[in-house]
Amino acid sequence: MTARVVVCYGTPEDPAAFDEHYTSVHVPLAATVPGLVEFTYGKASSMDGSEPPYYMIAYLVFADEASLKVGLGSAEMKAAGKDVRNFATGGATMFTQEDVRVSSVDR
């Protein structure tokens, strides 16, 4: 089972500045976290056209709980966490989760 850090970013005051900082500064910082096996992010959109609760959601995936703990305790994760205050003017909610595969999508 994999483990992940999920970061849900609220709508920033200046979306263009958020996007620029995120891609040019934050992604390179986060990508150096030890044990990270996958890092994806994307902007949220609602299925009914209403304002989504989050602007962007990022997923940092680790092979297992032990790797997650190493990553969370690393200097690289601390640096990435500290950087969030530099661009996330809409706030950020962070949590971890253990992934459970229900079924394969191969058909």
Rank of each mutant, 00 (worst) to 15 (best):
A31E: 14
V33L: 04
V33I: 15
V33W: 11
V33F: 08
V33P: 00
P34T: 01
P34W: 10
P34F: 11
L36E: 03
L36V: 10
V37G: 01
E38D: 06
F39H: 09
F39D: 07
T40F: 12
Y41W: 15
Y41H: 15
Y41D: 10
K43L: 05
K43M: 11
A44G: 12
S45M: 15
S45K: 13
S46M: 04
S46Y: 00
S46I: 02
M47Y: 05
D48F: 14
G49L: 06
E51V: 03
P53I: 00
P53Y: 01
Y54T: 08
Y55T: 02
Y55F: 13
Y55H: 03
Y55M: 10
M56C: 15
M56F: 07
M56S: 04
I57D: 04
I57E: 05
I57C: 09
I57R: 01
I57N: 03
Y59V: 08
Y59F: 14
F62P: 00
F62K: 00
A63L: 14
A63R: 15
A63Q: 13
D64N: 06
L68W: 14
K69E: 14
K69G: 06
V70C: 07
V70L: 08
V70F: 02
G71S: 04
G71Q: 10
L72V: 06
G73Y: 00
G73M: 14
G73H: 01
G73R: 00
S74N: 01
A75G: 04
A75M: 07
E76T: 02
E76P: 01
M77Q: 02
M77R: 06
A80N: 06
G81H: 07
G81I: 11
G81T: 07
G81F: 02
G81K: 09
K82Y: 10
D83F: 15
D83K: 13
V84K: 10
